[in-house]
Amino acid sequence: MAEIPSLPRRAFTVDAARRTDLASAFQSGADSYDKIRPSYPEQALDFTLQSQPKTVVDIGCGSGIFTEQLAARGLEVSAVDPSADMLRVLAERLPQVVRTCAPGEDTGLPENAFDLVTYAQAWHWVDHPKASAEAARLLRNDGWLTLLWNQLDVTIPWVHRLARIMHAGDVHRPELEPPLGGQFGKPEHGIWHWSMELDFAQIVELTQSRSYYRRASERTRAKVEGNLAWYWMEHLGYTAEAKVQVPYLTHAWRARRRTRR
């Protein structure tokens, strides 16, 4: 992977107070989030479902973008998220899915009930030791935990600068192994490159779906949007209406739950 000097060599290290503050940005605005956030490549679904699970709980499910893809593969899916607004949108698209409004560290779901636990775009929002313990509690012996992220492909210089202007906080080094509890074995990694066609209005919408923007003052939001307009139209030379293929990547980690003794 190309060297990315200004991306941290450590990730998942936000302190609890800051993490809670940023995560609170997603208690509302689920419709706009759902409209602009992308789904995941089919190869990432294949990677997630390699063990041929039948039951899965998607934790930090948000508006149900990944939940819907799991359900489309014929799994019995449950969904967990701390935002009632996100679950409202999920219920509209997937009324058959059992929904629980709870944090990933304490879902309240029955133990030994699932073959698979997934976190799509959400592992950086939880206390990792507690969330690992809860995932292990939910899983049957030899069940799997899979963590996925879609992110701008910042190995490409112009995309890297765009991500910094957007304050895309979920962009980190894909090769960094996420922290897991001792209940799980050594995780396996997968990565896939793709692109998403966006115009300037959609770039702004994508920025507005980020926790940094949602928690910022009106002055800061105006500055971010002004910087985006300069970069997109003056520096890169695109018109506002131009449809541009914006490079993305999806990276995932999967780990098997160790057998209980």
Results as ranks from 00 to 15, higher is better:
I36C: 08
V117I: 12
A79S: 14
G29E: 04
P82H: 10
P247W: 05
R256D: 01
D81I: 03
W149M: 02
A91P: 05
N227V: 00
V204I: 15
L176T: 06
P103Y: 09
M196R: 14
K54Q: 15
A133W: 07
S63F: 06
P41Q: 03
S32D: 14
Q96E: 15
H251L: 01
C61P: 01
E197S: 15
F114D: 04
L249D: 00
V97T: 10
Q50W: 08
I36Y: 09
N227F: 02
T118K: 08
V57Q: 07
L94H: 13
T220I: 07
S78R: 12
Q96M: 11
H124L: 10
R88T: 11
M196L: 14
T239E: 10
D115S: 09
W123H: 11
H193V: 04
V244A: 13
G104Y: 05
E175L: 03
H124N: 11
L87T: 05
T259H: 06
A252N: 03
G64N: 03
R219Y: 07
S83C: 02
P174S: 10
R164W: 06
D199S: 13
A163R: 08
L198I: 09
L162W: 03
Y213T: 04
F200T: 02
V80W: 08
A23E: 11
F47C: 08
S83V: 00
E197P: 10
T107K: 05
L152D: 00
S51Q: 13
M1H: 02
L116K: 12
A25T: 04
I36R: 09
L94I: 04
Q69F: 05
L75P: 03
T55D: 11
R257A: 12
P247A: 08
Y40C: 06
V224Y: 05
L206I: 00
S24L: 07
L206M: 13
R258L: 14
E68P: 01
D34S: 14
Q69M: 12
E175C: 01
W123A: 13
G60M: 09
Q151M: 08
H124V: 12
S83M: 02
S83G: 11
A255Q: 07
F66G: 00
A216M: 07
R214N: 06
H160N: 15
C101I: 01
W158T: 15
L198G: 12
V56P: 04
S78K: 04
D142L: 11
F47L: 03
G169Q: 15
L109D: 06
G182Q: 12
L45M: 14
Y119I: 04
I4W: 04
T207K: 07
A71F: 05
M233P: 00
V126I: 08
A201P: 01
G237A: 09
P179H: 14
V80G: 11
R260N: 15
V171Y: 01
R19M: 06
I165S: 08
L45F: 08
P41D: 04
D15R: 13
L45R: 03
R93A: 08
G60V: 07
E3M: 04
R88L: 02
T250I: 02
Q151K: 06
P5E: 10
L45V: 03
P95W: 05
Y33G: 05
R37T: 00
R99P: 00
D15L: 12
K54E: 14
R254M: 01
S39N: 12
S39Y: 04
R73I: 07
L249T: 00
A91Q: 15
L249E: 03
H124F: 13
S24Q: 02
D15H: 09
D34H: 14
H251R: 01
A44Y: 00
A71H: 15
